[in-house]
């Protein structure tokens, strides 16, 4: 398939003001500021094909949002070439805006005190959609996202998960070919996160919409993205299939158990299970899933102990990046 987005040697430098400590430094920085160049995005290249679902992950400040902003024309690159559907985002931002949708998880676009439907009507005017196709598009999206009732209630009365679903619809009304989502699941609980993932997956399957999302939550990406770009300190550290990452680096799961009674050891006798933390009531285990399925570990814990809480986590993204570096070096 043809690439619809191609990014070459993209670099973004920011000037930051440096300041010496204390009041003296504060005053000095006002009158003779000294600057430092920081590379937020450093010589990044990749291409995106139609229908791909791509996860951009990396720790906070890695350059994920900056890259997305450059692709949608909001920020201009310092160096590099971009081609998004044949447009140059820097020069043709407005033309491009008809083909892309953006959702910023932390910057809601819905009117807080009004039902989402009012914002949708406004957006239909912003994109100058004709009434009939807008109505049928809205009907379709509302069904797809299962928000038939919700869009008629004031946004302030919705749960965070419902709000995010409505936010995403607002960015899809004009039928964009690619949807950029910046931290779409931030602050959501597990069930709401799962719902959003499902819906995005369905959207991609139904419409072949290309989805690019950023997250610092490995779970998000693992569930829906077929391709993963891991970015750290402005550089791409990994670009490949999610499957590969899962097999190589995500074979570890972390299980955190809180017991009702204090024990010195869980007394498990299983291959590939390691205790990494042992506190009074809480035990943290690391499980190598290639050697031992998580279910088995859990069922053994349940059969041996009375527990008050149990959670299964992925290792944090920082740790995955660290492992990638270790393997490569």
């Amino acid at each position: 398939m043809v690439a619809i987005i191609s990014i070459k040697n993209l670099t973004k430098e920011f000037k930051t003001r440096r300041k010496e400590a204390g009041l003296k430094g504060s005053i000095k920085s006002i009158f003779s500021p000294s600057y430092k160049l920081t590379k937020a995005v450093d010589n990044v290249s990749f291409t995106i094909k139609k229908g791909e679902v791509i996860g951009f992950i990396g720790p906070n400040g890695a350059g994920k949002s900056t890259t997305i902003k450059m692709m949608s024309g909001i920020l201009f690159p310092s160096k590099g070439k971009m081609d998004v559907f044949g447009y140059n985002p820097q020069k043709q931002r407005k033309d491009l805006s008809f083909h892309i949708g953006t959702v910023f998880g932390q910057k809601p676009q819905l009117w807080y005190h009004l039902p989402a439907i009012d914002t949708y009507n406004l957006f239909s005017k912003i994109y100058e959609l004709d009434e009939k196709s807008y109505r049928s598009r809205l009907d379709y999206l509302v069904k797809l996202f299962e928000v038939e009732e919700i869009i008629f209630q004031p946004v302030r009365k919705l749960s965070l998960g419902q709000r995010m679903r409505c936010e995403i619809i607002a960015s899809l009304l004009h039928g964009p070919k690619v949807l950029f989502l910046d931290e779409p699941t931030i602050g959501l609980d597990l069930i709401a996160k799962k719902k959003i993932r499902e819906l995005l997956k369905r959207l991609n399957e139904n419409e072949k919409v290309t989805i690019v999302l950023t997250s610092h939550d490995m779970d998000d990406v693992e569930q829906i993205c077929n391709r993963l770009i891991i970015i750290n300190e402005g550089k791409i550290v990994y670009d490949g299939s999610t499957k590969d990452i899962r097999e190589k680096y995500l074979k570890y799961k972390v299980i955190k158990v809180t017991l009702e009674r204090q024990v010195t050891s869980l007394g498990l006798n299983l291959l590939g299970v390691k205790t990494i933390e042992n506190e009074k009531y809480t035990q943290t285990l690391e499980v190598d899933t290639s050697k031992q399925p998580v279910q088995k570990v859990i069922s053994q814990i349940l059969s041996k102990h009375k527990i008050s809480d149990i959670t299964v986590l992925d290792p944090p993204i920082e740790e995955i990046i660290e492992r990638i570096f270790k393997k490569e070096l």
Binding site: T16, R17, S26, S29, A40, G61, T66
Partner: peptide, 18 residues
Amino acid sequence: MTLTKYIEISKISVYNSL
């Protein structure tokens, strides 16, 4: 973003005094 975090921190210290 890390970048803005540091801008914020330096801004805060300037502001606290001035």
